[in-house]
Design a protein around this nucleic acid. Structure first.
Lengths: 212, 212
DNA sequence: GATAGCTTCAGTGTATACATAGAACGCGCA
DNA sequence: TGCGCGTTCTATGTATACACTGAAGCTATC
């Protein structure tokens, strides 16, 4: 593995998991010492992070972790709605029914998904990620998939703001199950509508939990 | 201006204007000599181009200009449809009617737009670009705007494949005028529909001109 | 006492030297 | 003559030294 990849992966996870909160300054010399590589691969990593929107150059001098306000979240969900609705519609036309029917079944088993033995909800998030991947694969559009991938980075980062309780996650799982079922049935209008409903619910819970 | 910006701008325009056709290898040493800067800023420029999708690393060794097949064009237009339809809808809600009415008027004056004294159709493309910018500004969504910006880079690049004759450009201008009018009227359904029609026409002409 | 200018310094921007890996070519053997 | 192995070479990956810009703090003057 290249040193620049290592630096990129380390910084990316640090940002996404809020070990480097918004506003943190990413100084090249400090990072190169902390990560044990020279400034060159660190610079490359910072450039990639800036291109992704996780960091941004500040007044031509220094790079800082980008801020995440509720306005940003609203804008993010507006883009998300456009992309995910279309992706769901296209998956209806091109997807394999059996795959999405299986995902629907697994998503419907809420009790197993949100067991007490999984406080981090890894099982839930992995299954939701599997649905995303299945949709991407069904759509078969590299540009759309790339746009969605760039979007999901930010969504993982704001997951921390959700403070999702088990009740909401169970509700979200059912919403995802509805989407999967609509795709399995090949009903683009329903898939798009279910996606719209799910995203609206998610956004409203996010806004309510962050008093703005 | 930084040397890396200079290298980036030079390579970007070389790729977009097909001086560097798809498949061209972007060798660091050769570029650093040709552009008169060292390898470091050249590397930074190549990283930015790779992030944009204009170039891609080839098997871990060397960077090449990305290929543009008709399949890619189809995928590009699929993403474009999703983004531009939503942008047009949102512009209806948030845009200033006067601005889009003025754009409609200018786009309707096809004769002035496609005069014989402008063989490169600069007047046409600048006005279409102004409509794009007006929509972006009306929507007021940085994430959506960035996604559209990343998309338009590729669109400018495939413009070379269009072989647009005056008849088609006049038609396209009228389609753009229809979109601008729908936004000025605040009719999201019409704006979205007009965008869909326009993109379908554009794509069909592209495919017809490239026999696949 | 306040402001303007200068000095200093920290940190980025660039260049270049060195390490390294992948590929191509050639040679030898079957 | 063809295949396989080894060597060499070219181009990328990394490290580091140097240059330069922008900012902050200090001093001197009004």
């Amino acid at each position: 593995m290249r040193a620049s990849d290592k630096a990129y992966a380390a910084l990316r996870s640090d940002i996404i998991e809020w070990r480097l909160p918004p506003g943190s300054v990413l100084a090249e010399v400090e990072l190169s010492e902390r990560l044990g590589v020279s400034r060159t691969p660190v610079r490359e990593a910072l450039a990639r992070l800036s291109a992704e929107g996780l960091a941004e150059p500040q007044s031509g001098r220094g790079v800082v972790v980008t801020d995440i306000s509720m306005d940003h979240v609203r804008e993010l969900f507006e883009l998300r709605l456009a992309l995910e609705c279309r992706a769901a519609e296209l998956a209806c036309e091109r997807g394999d029914s059996d795959i999405f029917r299986a995902l629907h079944d697994r998503l419907s088993n809420v009790d197993a998904l949100l067991s007490e033995q999984d406080p981090d909800r890894r099982g839930y998030y992995e299954l939701v990620g599997a649905l995303d991947s299945a949709i991407d694969a069904a759509v078969g559009n590299a540009y759309l998939a790339q746009a969605l991938k760039g979007l999901r980075v930010h969504l993982v980062r704001i997951r921390r703001l959700s403070h999702d309780n088990t009740t909401r996650l169970a509700e979200a799982a059912r919403e995802h199950a509805t989407i999967a079922l609509a795709i399995a049935n090949g009903s683009p209008a329903v898939a798009s509508a279910a996606t719209t409903v799910h995203l609206d619910n998610s956004l409203r819970h996010l806004l309510a939990a962050n008093h703005s």
